[in-house]
Amino acid sequence: MSYIVIDSSKCKSCYLCMEVCPNKLIKKSGNVGKTGEYTVEFVDKENKCTGCAMCAMMCPDIAITGVYKE
């Protein structure tokens, strides 16, 4: 089971990660972040995350602080 860790205090709601995730596992959360928009959250109920780390590569703010692969 692979997963990512998001530091929502760093998320500026650009949503570039949502777009780049091949399995669309990153979604808008219900929480408003530092830019006044919803931050993102990682939702992977079916264990689809492959740990490809493209979301972290794309995040301009290092809000995706870790990607773990098993």
Partner: peptide, 13 residues
């Protein structure tokens, strides 16, 4: 440290 750039700015990348 947190980048102080605007949302989605490529400076961070």
């Amino acid at each position: 440290s947190s980048f102080t750039f605007c949302s989605g700015c490529d400076h961070g990348l």
